[in-house]
Amino acid sequence: MPKFAKKKSSEILEGDLTPMIDMTFQLIAFFMLLINFSEVDRAEEISLPSSVLAIPPETRPDYQIILNLEPGGSVKFQGEAVPTIDGMGPIFRQEINSANREGVSNPGDIAVVIRSHQDTPTGLVQRLISKCQDSELQSFSLRVKNQ
């Protein structure tokens, strides 16, 4: 009968975790800086037209309204779909009041960002702009995908 070696007392093996923790914290810092919680403003299903000359906004305006216009004419605003452009009136009034509370008293200073699908008839975009003008909004940006 073979003789088994006498079992040695087991030691706890401890690797040096410092580099792993360093790297993990760096990764967390990286992802924390890049995370964007304003995704709700932009509807991902909207395929924007592309352009090489469009200028990425350098500064964020004091107050902005992002309108996502779908080819059928429905508007997505802050994650909620409004079936028709004509239904945007109360939302604009609400946003103007909200801007006023934040110190933007002139509706003309509110930046309206239009994110329209590339297949939307331009007439709908113009109708949306016209609807904004009914609420005294005057500053518009047409958002496109930067190539």
């Binding site: 924390m32 890049l34 352009s51 702009i129 940006s141 047409l142 496109v144």
Partner: peptide
Amino acid sequence: FFIMTFKVVAMEGDFTVKMPL
């Protein structure tokens, strides 16, 4: 959590249109 919520977003730019009343 951060890896799962990370999304690569394409750069977007603006064309400014002035439509005064």
